[in-house]
């Protein structure tokens, strides 16, 4: 069955996106990417050391991936725009994940500033994927501003607490006509599968893999979970029931009437 994800005019093979922060050794990154089968890889521009080859994260990314620099460290729209432009000028392509965080305590994204940055960067020819707090009105504004996908958080970044914003993400999936990619908070493969079963187009994972005792094995587990969750979504799972099916149904007497009328 053909089930391709398309973002910014590009076909994306894998629905698992990977982050590259927090790893103990850059040499792990190519192995992790291989095991995860991820194609879209995000890198914080603030950490890219362009001057030193062995310290330049970009040199550890395998060919064929879609590089998505992110604006980590930006505190407002102006800084995010600046970082995106530096990334493009440095040869990182025209995809950008907007991260505007004006709160270091919870690292929650600033939806208002994010909308402003999207407006400018889309006009500037970027494919913009905004990281956001799952709010329907903000997501609509982001879509109107030309975002290529919407990336709501499942829980505050780095917390590994799972899909705490499940209800709100569900609403975004129903209402926004763009790929919804759950970014941040996913701590276990089962939670990635849960997001995919809900109908998320993809998930982005970083901390859970980078801080696992065996990151490569964890990356593989996430790849399988995302695939399983997607298949479950496509196959249309049976509706869950709150009660067991009653053996003496209260409306059983209507059955006779129906069969008579047929």
């Amino acid at each position: 069955m053909e089930d391709k994800l398309e973002i910014g005019g590009r076909q994306v093979e894998s629905r698992l996106f990977m982050g590259t922060g927090k790893f103990a050794d850059y040499r792990l990154i190519p192995e992790v990417i291989k095991a995860s089968k991820a194609q879209v890889i995000t890198v914080a521009l603030r950490r890219v050391d362009f001057g030193t080859p062995e310290e330049n994260m970009l040199n550890y990314l395998p060919p064929g991936i879609i590089l998505m620099p992110n604006t980590s460290g930006a505190r407002n729209a102006a800084e995010a725009i600046r970082i995106a432009r530096i990334a493009r000028a440095a040869g990182c392509g025209n995809w950008v994940k907007i991260e505007v965080v004006s709160d270091q305590k919870y690292l929650l994204p600033d939806n208002f500033e994010t909308v402003k940055a999207i407006e400018v960067l889309v006009k500037d020819g970027f494919v913009v994927l905004p990281y956001m707090s799952p709010d329907l009105m903000a997501a609509k504004r982001m879509a109107e501003a030309g975002a290529a996908a919407i990336m709501p958080l499942g829980a505050p970044i780095g917390t590994n607490r799972g899909l705490k914003t499940r209800e709100l993400i569900q609403i975004l999936i129903s209402e926004i006509n763009l790929p919804i990619i759950v970014d941040a908070g996913i701590g276990r493969p089962s939670e990635a599968a849960e997001a995919m079963e809900l109908g998320a187009a993809a998930v982005l994972v970083n901390t859970a893999v980078a801080t696992a005792d065996n990151p490569v094995l964890m990356a593989e587990a996430f790849a399988q979970a995302v695939e399983a969750g997607r298949k479950a979504y496509l196959s249309g799972p049976g509706a869950t029931r709150h009660f067991a099916e009653a053996s003496s149904p209260l409306t059983g007497f209507l059955r006779n009437e129906r069969s008579e009328s047929v």
Partner: peptide
């Protein structure tokens, strides 16, 4: 078992030093 990080911030007012050339923004 830890990564010694040498760069965690990028001076936003400067361009990018790449192959000994500065790309200005």
């Amino acid at each position: 078992g830890y990564k010694p990080v040498l760069k965690d911030w990028h001076d936003l007012n400067l361009g990018v030093k790449k192959d000994n050339e500065t790309v200005s923004i």
